[in-house]
Amino acid sequence: MDTRNFLFMFYGFLAAWVIVMIYIITLARRNSRLKRELDDVKRLLDVKETRAEDRTASLPHGRGSVQG
């Protein structure tokens, strides 16, 4: 193989590989971030539901009082 400009050819291939790799790493990071956010919001919902149940249970006939 002709070896002229071999170094810059290598840089070119390397640059392509690095760009795609950086993107894939950001994808992986985003994946774990999303998983965490999903867990968080699910926990938030759980808390809310238990509270709602508590409230309904503590009221007579399982219904809320009128404040309006």
């Binding site: 709602a52 409230r55 309904t56 009221l59 219904r63 809320g64 009082s65 009128v66 404040q67 309006g68």
Partner: peptide
């Protein structure tokens, strides 16, 4: 009795 409607027809009742 304006509250009647809410008591009869909503899940959580009251408001």
């Amino acid at each position: 009795d304006p509250g009647h409607l809410y008591r009869e027809h909503t899940e959580l009742g009251g408001f």
